[in-house]
Design a protein around this nucleic acid. Sequence first.
DNA 1: ATCCCTCGAGTTCA
DNA 2: CTCGAGGGAT
Length: 687
Amino acid sequence: MSFSTTKKAAAERIAVLREAINKFRYHYHVLNESLISDEALDTLKKELFDLEGRFPELVTPDSPTQRVAGEPLQKFNKVSHEVRMISLNDAFSEADLRAWFERLANFLGREPKPEFYCELKIDGLAIELIYENGVLARASTRGDGLVGEEVTQNLKTVEAIPLRLRGNYPKKLTVRGEVFLTRQEFERINREQVARGEKPYANPRNVAAGAVRQLDPRITASRRLDSFAYSIVTDLGQATHEEEHRLLHSFGFKTNQHNALAGSLEKVIAFRNHWESHREKLAYEIDGVVVILNDNELFARAGIIGKSPRAAMAYKFASREATTIVREIVVQVGRTGVLTPVAILDPVNVGGVTITHATLHNADEIERLGLKLGDTVVVSRAGDVIPKIIKVLPELRTGKEHGFKMPQVCPVDESPVLRDGALYRCGNPVCGGRHREALYHFVGRSAFNIEGMGPKIIDRFLDEGLVADAADIFSLREGDIAALPRFGEKSAANLINEIAGRKQITLTRFLFALGILHVGEETARVLAEWLVSRLPKRGTTFNPEVLGSLMKEISVDDLQMIPDVGPAVAQSIALWFTQSRNQTLLKRLGGVGVVFQVSSPKEKGALTGKSFVITGTLSQMSRQEAKERIRNLGGVVHESVSKATSYVVVGADPGSKARKAGELGLTILSEEELGSLLNVAQKKNAS
DNA sequence: ATCCCTCGAGTTCA
DNA sequence: CTCGAGGGAT
């Protein structure tokens, strides 16, 4: 909430935030069940912290910001830590990190040698282990930092924790580390859980926490926990943090080999960025990196500020979930007249980008979420890209929220709205909003592919009256365009040239461009193939007008003969071609010189019967190009992976399809492998 | 009548 | 990428 807030509004918000945070914490820490993700809860805590920072007079001693961690369970013996187990301050950006180093230099009175020890920040449970005469004597959880719970018996079941030290160990040794579950173990446990008909656990961290606090150590053992050690509390004269890790390793502890020394802040940033993009490759979950001033003497001199050490920082990854507030719901009109509600959000950073809008799909989705205007919501990015509202937090309501109803009339032209299943449609088939979207679609990449003619340009042409429908695009004149403000002669000429070059088009692209309901790329293709096979006498040029008269004669029953075309699709196609408005458009398109390219006969054979799915970004050829080459060789390209898929081509940054392909045990091709497969297929065809 | 597979449509941000 | 729904198989 970066806008100014009145004190009254702040007080109100603070009150609901505290109540909600307390509820979530109680469930999480005491009952070991999470109602909300850690990341979303963090956003709420940060919002409360910021608000209290701006209105310090509103801070009360019982505010959740005034405490370190949850109360220990009653079941375990309590142990006091000799040295308080502190938490780290968080940095969320490069700027945060640099500011931290500047403050540190300031405090020390000089810039310390920039040597940082960087560790992966494992998402697990902090623990303390005490060894006497080389034997594990006591193990405890962090608890509130001062007092934790004794869980020695349980942690003795963790194979990665030595029961007896190796090497040249001191008489007494206190070390700290993390216990956690690998992703693989987590999944195994969840599979068992589901098989028993119980709800799966939310995240590995929760299961690890539950396992450590089991009353029966045999249950802990069945969880197969893992552990890393990361610091030594006992003074053994270690000069650097790096040396501490070497010592830990020599005593027989498991330490993380990815940890590294960084000689500059730039190197720290690079380390953190590297692991942000490679975190999925690790066997366990991490939520950032820990940056520690390597020199132990300086580290000690820097001391503690608040409840965290001054010379260390948790440099977090961008959260993949956060909370924000729904300010408004606007309704957009799509190409087919469907009304789509979109939530306008207070800007919030999720996964490194600022989110301001999120689609709500339709009225049912709003109802399912139980969303009201003014609600606090959890947002994430589906597939790490598209913003999505996951759930509403009714705990944070003040009573001022109000419900949302889909409009009765179209927001563009006020025609009555008709309900069609889950969808609402503008009743006017030539509604201005629909028409606009239809034109965007017409020039789009899979249709006429007119480059340099995006939505912005089309809007201007429409508003200036240069263009009223799709056919007008082809009779645009250079002078008219150049006359528009901020349109040079050069760019006008380029655009005219581009348009002229697109008058020749494949039948498939043309049918798709028309924007007939239920006719997408795939249906346009089968429809085109079918049409070509029953084309009338040769000789006449095949253009939109001829297509129009041809289609007028075709019945719904005929159309249903086409594979993948059933009653709904056939009806929609037939209806489109019987409407005089559309017939006129086809005539005009023929009149301005649009003609169909006779598709080159297929280089049949080599890939016939093979199906492909492409995911990720290709570098050598465009996705469109790859699709065309595969089809020319007789292969088919699908959008989604199924067990019938022969090859999955995986480019850079693949989506979830790559994972699914792996699960189904399908053949995976790299871009290079696809290239050579295509070359081989081409040769085979030639011979 | 019911399940499973595909396709269509809509959407975000850098 | 995801959701809903059309189409075809069973």
